[in-house]
Design a protein around this nucleic acid. Structure first.
Length: 156
DNA sequence: GCCAACGTTGGC
DNA sequence: GCCAACGTTGGC
């Protein structure tokens, strides 16, 4: 039974269309211990919502899949990367990440505002005031409820 | 090991 | 561009 997750990204940097184009992507650059620990829990085949942040409107735009379990984030060792972390070493890497693969776009974006109107989703970290986790767990109930919002709509 | 200052996130 | 929230850092 796969577990479910949510991946936030700024579409200017990496969007669902980008993921569709490249097929899979190392989810590198996450520099939060909490988010790192969440990624370490992910298993091959787990599904995730793909969420666009820092645009108007923000919302869930697609579904992705964990295609590689947590491994050291390559950007932490790359001096030329903005995510280079001189305090981390290959013998004991500080930052870990999964790879995500494209599954599908939703028939339409589900805006954050719409998610807020559903009481059963009120405990999602995404909707909690001040919660800024870039990678989050999603319960099976939340997963089913959100997909049901667009289930009857035509795929686009 | 406390806690104030700082930096980042991300909706608005 | 603003600013609330909150994780991290660093002085002590």
């Amino acid at each position: 039974m796969p577990r479910h997750w949510l991946f936030k990204t700024e579409p200017d940097a990496f969007s669902i269309d980008d993921l569709q184009r490249v097929g899979r992507e190392e989810w590198s650059g996450v520099r939060s211990f909490q988010a790192r620990n969440i990624m370490r829990e992910m298993k091959l085949g787990d599904l995730g919502f793909f969420y666009h942040s820092s645009i108007q409107p923000p919302g869930i735009v697609g579904v992705c899949e964990v295609v590689a379990e947590a491994h050291p984030d390559s950007t932490q060792f790359d001096r030329k990367s903005e995510y280079w972390d001189p305090s981390s070493g290959r013998a004991n890497p500080k930052w870990w990440c999964v790879d995500v693969g494209f599954v599908r776009k939703l028939p339409r974006m589900i805006p954050l505002d719409e998610l807020r109107t559903i009481p059963a989703l009120a405990y999602m970290p995404l909707l909690r005031r001040g919660q800024r986790l870039s990678v989050q767990p999603v319960t099976p109930q939340e997963w089913a409820l959100i997909l049901a919002l667009v289930a009857s709509e035509k795929s686009g």
